[in-house]
């Protein structure tokens, strides 16, 4: 099948151009650093020992907080990996001319886009699975802390990473690699700041400020999806704290994105994928 041939090409590229290896090494470096930091936090900061139920509650809060921070870093690394490989894919192939032998084959242009998309989605999935397993393993082996709702949470983060990759692919179908990088990075930054503003608005119970954050999430729902994921992976106590306006992690999950944001994210992803195909089909190569 032609679509899967393109997917295979995408895998081979990630492997041969050492993109996968670089991402993996960076990921391992992060995990080692994180494990070291987490170890010292768990053993040398005067946290109450296991045993008592009340001290276990405090421990869970603290570990939950730092696990949340680790998840954000893993989330960011995965997004960066996904965006870096997909930013150059259409723009780069058009620029260098390698697309010409592909696009003159009997494959539909839509098959080229979807084949690449599938390849990146699988790569991102494998990377996220590796990094998240590493993180969970570190946290569990050092502190015996297990993250609640981990599958739902990881699924949401995966969804977020694929969404940004799809946005990047859509930009790459029209703009140069550099412009694509600029646009996606800018939009990601906007969503990040917007999410931050939304949390501050929630602390001060200012609906206007919260709305600014919500609008930024509509422009790019990445941050909102991460916060929803982080909320899902927070202990029930943390969730209760969030409900009354207390931050329960470094990413300040106070204003909890509604499940509608997930529906919106799915819609957003499909539209971006549609744009990528539509633009690429009509483009002169």
């Amino acid at each position: 099948m032609r679509l899967l041939t393109i997917t295979r090409l995408t895998f081979l590229e990630a492997a041969r151009r050492k993109i996968a290896l670089a991402a993996l090494l960076l990921g391992v470096a992060f995990l080692v650093l994180y494990a070291t930091g987490f170890y010292f936090i768990a053993t040398e900061t005067g946290l109450p020992g296991e045993g008592l139920q009340s001290s276990q509650l405090i421990r869970n809060q603290v570990f939950g907080f730092f696990t949340n921070a680790g998840m954000y870093a893993v989330n960011f690394l995965t997004i960066a990996m996904g965006a870096l490989v997909s930013a150059d894919t259409l723009a780069g192939e058009i620029g260098s001319g390698t697309i010409q032998t592909l696009a003159t084959k009997p494959a539909r242009r839509a098959e080229i886009v979807l084949g690449k998309w599938l390849g990146f989605a699988l790569l991102i999935g494998a990377y996220l699975a590796f990094m998240f397993s590493g993180l969970m393993l570190i946290v569990y082996s050092i502190a015996r802390y297990s993250v609640p709702n981990v599958f739902l949470g990881v699924a949401l983060i995966y969804f977020e990473c694929v969404l940004i990759m799809t946005l990047t692919l859509a930009c790459s179908s029209r703009f140069s690699t550099l412009a694509t990088g600029g646009i996606v990075f800018g939009m990601y930054g906007l969503a990040f700041i917007g999410g931050f503003v939304e949390q501050v608005g929630a602390i001060f119970r200012n609906q206007g400020v919260v709305n600014v954050g919500i609008i930024s999430s509509l422009i790019l729902p990445s941050e909102a999806l991460f916060r929803r994921a982080a909320y899902e992976m927070t202990s029930p106590l943390g969730q209760a704290a969030a409900a009354v306006g207390m931050p329960s992690g470094p990413m300040l999950v106070i204003s909890i994105p509604s499940p509608m944001m997930i529906v919106y994210g799915a819609f957003y992803l499909l539209v971006m994928l549609g744009i990528a195909i539509w633009v690429f089909q009509r483009r002169d190569l």
Partner: peptide, 11 residues
């Protein structure tokens, strides 16, 4: 088709 600049996936 053999394109003019014969740029291929060189990996």
């Amino acid at each position: 088709f053999l394109p003019e600049h014969f740029r291929f996936h060189d990996w």
